[in-house]
């Protein structure tokens, strides 16, 4: 069999699966999104209809806050873990990366156990402040949940980047008289920028699309995935749900594509 035929045969199953179960559904989604009462206007409604716009802004802000906080937390912890060797370090790293494969629903449950009605935080604050702090079912709870699944991912990327840092750059800066702060500001943090961009984009895209956590905590938090879900199931407004999904997909994809064009490397979301 000629080599080119073989290569085509190798790609055939992929083409079938991707076309049938991804491309076709996506095209259908876009078409359905523009075929409701509003027609193609459904896409404009995401931006101009106050209810949708408020949700969109809410979701984006939540995702931005999640991204910024996880980057901050992961940088401090990641730099620390990669720069020091001490007993128990491996365990600590394992603990920080352990929730990597938790589905969103489980993360939601973790937040309930922390800040729910029977949660740990409540049972600590009750004797201390005389009231039970319960915020799992609010936007703060959702934020905590998003942090919960972003931190492990971002930490992994940043630790890998720190490991690859060229130590001689740092040494050169110190030889030139730079103190620890200056070294961090002028050498280490700039060198980690590609990792920040890559892992930040992943955190952002994942937070935009996260459904499981919101679903578990769900009472009345307005985020885009929940809105899509309720439009689809409760209001049976299928066209609007489709249009919103397309919008959500575009925002998440744009974040990753943008990050990739910045860092030139490979940026992919996970889970």
């Amino acid at each position: 069999m000629p080599f080119n035929t073989f290569i085509r045969l190798c790609l055939l199953p992929l083409a079938m699966v991707v076309v049938a179960f991804f491309l076709l559904p996506m095209v259908r989604l876009v078409i359905v999104g523009g075929s409701g009462d509003l027609g193609v206007g459904a896409y404009a409604a995401i931006l101009f209809e106050p209810r949708f716009r408020a949700t969109l802004i809410n979701t984006v802000m939540l995702a931005v806050a999640t991204t910024a906080s996880s980057l901050l937390i992961a940088t401090v912890a990641g730099l620390f873990l990669q720069r020091h060797r001490f007993p128990g370090r491996a365990l600590l790293v394992a603990m920080l990366t352990f929730p990597l494969a938790f589905p969103g629903v489980v993360v939601g449950f973790m937040i309930i156990l922390l800040a729910g009605r029977q949660g740990l935080i409540g049972s600590i604050t009750l004797p201390l402040f005389g009231e039970k702090w319960v915020f799992a079912y609010s936007i703060q709870g959702l934020f905590l949940g998003y942090l919960y699944f972003s931190i492990p991912r971002v930490i992994l990327t940043i630790m890998a980047a720190v490991e690859k840092l060229d130590l001689s750059l740092e040494e050169a800066a110190r030889a030139l008289g730079a103190g620890p702060w200056a070294v961090h500001r002028d050498v280490i943090l700039p060198a980690l920028r590609p990792a920040f961009v890559a892992s930040g984009a992943i955190a952002f895209a994942t937070a935009m699309g996260a459904f499981g956590t919101a679903f578990t905590l769900a009472t009345n938090i307005n985020v885009l995935p929940m809105l899509i879900y309720t439009e689809f199931t409760l209001s049976a407004n299928i066209a609007m749900a489709a249009a919103l999904s397309v919008g959500l997909g575009l925002v998440a994809w744009a974040a990753l594509a943008l990050a990739r064009s910045f860092s030139g490397g490979t940026v992919a979301a996970a889970g």
């Binding site: 559904p25 996506m26 989604l29 935009m208 899509i228 997909g249 998440a252 974040a255």
Partner: peptide, 23 residues
């Protein structure tokens, strides 16, 4: 092609599921 097959990583599961349901 690589870009297309990695798209499902960026597109939220909800959107893919909706597309599958509609199709």
């Amino acid at each position: 092609v690589e870009e297309i097959i990695t798209l499902p990583l960026a597109v939220p599961g909800l959107a893919i599921a909706l597309g599958l349901l509609l199709t």
